[in-house]
Design a protein around this nucleic acid. Structure first.
Lengths: 334, 334
DNA sequence: CTGAAAGCGCTTACAG
DNA sequence: CTGAAAGCGCTTACAG
């Protein structure tokens, strides 16, 4: 319980025979310090087991060494492993750069709420946001000069920095694959198209038709909400209105599984009667029967990229948003 | 980009006509301050839009307002929504108590690694650990006086504070249910029994047999590793060695699904020939066919409890470990 | 390249 | 109940 008196600059300065200012310079990588003195300081640091006091550094320098990861309450991280994976990718990269990850699970809609205040107070050096429905708060913070990265494309093309999966490319590849394997009538069950991801996947689907000089019938486009149930319900509608539908791109794996259930309950088989492709390459895509063909995104890499863009910003570098590639994974359902 | 000069104690003190010490007392809830002065300070705080500088507070008080959540690298949070859910429960409660959550995804085995140093350096006020295989580091930190809570039972019964699901009770209830529904020969596919959770679920299974004055045949106890594949493989072994097995408690939902696959590929049906119960009540338990009967644990509540125990410790209260109740959810598989 | 000194914005004995 | 003052452990112009 009795804490050993932790060494401070004063102890190191004494031990190394230099001033505290020099200790500070060495520890902050100031290259102008005389090599011998640098060595002496480093040796003292090592011998004394010195460790910087982050609070003192923060107070004096104005930098906290903390990056917030803000997750909207609505996002049900509760059932979705997606966010956890992104976050661990972020954390890994941040830690390697001596930054800590502050997790905030909260309502992000309030431009004037506690989170906004916290971030404005500069209690963190930057903030990484997860896909948001409303980006008013983020834009305000960005305008105030807080380094920001968004995971997922923002709605407005403000000059916000973001990283995202190639949703358009994924939707395109999935749809194309269905046509390539011989499907004549390919439908889509979209996710929440209020989100950019949902919208972009649909755009990819439409693009395939466009390149063929065709336009998909309205009845082939059904809107789900990423839930299993919505996949099942929308598939039933599809089969009713288009008994000859023979290919479906469901915008996530969960809906794809719901769709498969609906297809099988109608007496049809997958993929022979109707081929199905999902999106995410979640565990379920491997455990389901038939195994699901799907669009794989490297989620951890998405988080790592977000962290890297943050670090680049902190270093004052000019940064650009990044779109991460996807990969079509073919299993049994298509 | 030009930051407006943020107000400090000096501005509030001036505006309220009191000393900075009094401002500090009011803001820290010191009840001895004269009510009128308190009101004056609060008014000034409000008018000036004052917000405390956490770094300064930390430096002066020694308290950082930060709680670390340490997640072992091995735990594949990558595919498991469990940890994300626990973490969001923790974060919610911590935020409500003006504490921030610092996420550390890292290797926890090293008693002398960077994480240990970070935590020892008191850059956080406390640490919440997730289920660990080796608790040497945690014990060391606890001995050094760092407030600690563990999510999941520790291996040694050191006096570490922890919160855990009632794994024993869950295993007991699942096994009991299988017998109650008429199963004569109930097997178990365990999870990693190097973990306490895995071990306790098995203990619950054994206890049911014990109360019946019976001992399960060795061949009825198969060890999986929580993966779908292990559930499938172990179930095949079970069916081979015990063709008349008619009930299986799989220690998580994923293995239960693997087991169902093996049962069906053998030409048997679930639950008529073999009833199956899983553990977790994950999404998959609802999306699978047949829908899975399982043991539900309130994962977010687990995180909330962990945070509450941490806060109690910070308040100097005497705290005791908590075991959270589980609930048997019966669907189609048993 | 280096040091003395002021300062970052709070908290907390110490007196009264 | 309140204030003056010292101090928390760093960083950073300013001189030299």
């Amino acid at each position: 319980m009795t804490a050993k008196p932790r060494p401070t600059y004063s102890a190191i300065a004494k031990s190394a025979g230099v001033s505290e200012a020099t200790v500070s310079r060495v520890l902050n990588g100031d290259s102008r310090v005389n090599p011998e003195r640098t060595a002496a300081v480093l040796k003292a640091v090592d011998q004394l087991g010195y460790r910087k006091n982050r609070a003192a550094t923060a107070l004096a320098s104005g930098r906290t060494g903390l990056i917030a990861v803000v997750i909207d309450d609505d996002l049900s991280i509760f059932d979705d492993p997606f966010w956890g994976t992104v976050t661990s990718g972020i954390s890994r990269v941040l830690m390697a750069n001596h930054l800590q990850t502050v997790l905030m699970v909260t309502a992000v809609n309030n431009v004037d709420g506690p989170v906004a205040h916290y971030l404005e107070s500069r209690e963190v050096d930057g903030a990484i946001f997860f896909q948001l429905h409303k980006d008013a708060m983020v834009r305000k913070l960005a305008k105030a000069g807080l380094p920001i990265v968004i995971t997922g494309s923002p709605h407005t093309d403000a000059d916000l920095i973001f990283v995202d999966t190639d949703n358009f490319g994924g939707g395109y590849a999935a749809t194309k694959q269905l046509l390539n394997r011989g499907c004549k009538k390919v439908a889509i069950i979209t996710g929440d198209i209020e989100t950019t991801a949902g919208h972009q996947r649909l755009d990819g689907y439409n693009q395939v038709y466009r390149e063929l000089g065709r336009v998909p019938a309205k009845s082939l486009i059904r809107h789900g909400d990423y839930s299993y149930e919505s996949g099942q319900v929308q598939m039933r509608h599809l089969l009713e209105e288009n008994p000859d539908v023979d290919g479906v791109f469901a915008c996530n794996d969960l809906m794809a599984l719901g769709a498969i259930a609906a297809i099988e309950e109608s007496g049809r088989t997958v993929p022979d009667d109707v081929a199905v492709i999902g999106f995410d390459d979640s565990i379920m895509s491997r455990t389901s029967r038939p195994q699901l063909s799907t669009v794989r995104q490297d989620i951890a890499a998405l988080g790592e990229a977000a962290a890297q863009l943050m670090i680049a910003q902190l270093n004052g570098e000019q940064v650009e948003s990044r779109i991460m590639p996807v990969e079509l994974v073919l299993r049994e359902s298509a």
